[in-house]
Amino acid sequence: MADVKVKLEAADVAEIENRIIELCQQLPRGITDQVIQNELPHLEPQHRAMAINRLLSTGQLDLLKSSTGLLYRIKDAQSAGKIKGSDNQEKLVYQIIEDAGNKGIWSRDIRYKSNLPLTEINKILKNLESKKLIKAVKSVAASKKKVYMLYNLQPDRSVTGGAWYSDQDFESEFVEVLNQQCFKFLQTKAEAARDSKQSPMIQRNSSFASSHEVWKFICELGISKVELSMDDIETILNTLIYDGKVEMTIIAAKEGTVGSVDGQMKLYRAVNPIIHPTGIMRTPCGLCPVFDDCHEGGEISPSNCTYMTEWLEF
């Protein structure tokens, strides 16, 4: 028995492996044990397992779990080629990073998933980086946290922060400028509508601008070096809503109308605030930082209040 086994191994192992790979290539979606059994009926289960194990360990096959059972699939030659010459640990780390996609993965998470010591992981990561297989990207969420992802991937918005970030720094000035420009645009439109002296209904309707119009205006202004999408502009317009300067309505639009999304169009218009600064804020007490410590007869009191004195002299 042992004799037969040795003989088989020596002569046929390569052949069996080739057969399995061929099968996999024929069925790129993956094959099950059953398929191999059907194709190679004379093969003993032991040998089949051995052959598959070898293929798996050399990284030529992927083992997947599906509803019908285990599934073998051939690995694409490219990725197999890339990590050629690496050891198992490197492959493991590479796989973990690959699974993380364009969101990236933190080195500590790699450690949890791979169960390798951190020093080892750092070595592997350095290695892979030097081979240009992976890259480290700084996340905007936490400036000191580096995440790793495959070299050819474009980092996700949640990592880079989208158009509003340059090198993990939030471009608040850029946002502020856009915010002001959008408001200016809407305000001019609203004023023009008010001056048109038409019936109130038309006046209001013409004070609205769709997000597409605002987007076009901003693009033509050319204040932005990066390409802004409509969504980006809508985010800016939303901040104007939270500033209480703009209001939005959604109207139904015919499919295909410029600026409509899913048959909806977002319309924005500039509005005036409903009240002037309220009475209490026109007194020094409204803004006083030591208001709670202020008592007549105390160290801080209305009688010796310097804010009041300045205010009265103003």
């Binding site: 209490i280 007194t283 007490c285 409204g286 208001f291 202020c294 007549e296 009191s301 209305p302 009688s303 209040c305 009041m308």
Partner: peptide, 13 residues
Amino acid sequence: QRCYKTVANLIER
């Protein structure tokens, strides 16, 4: 409450 105290402060002043 802040308003009440403010008015009181103004009167004191």
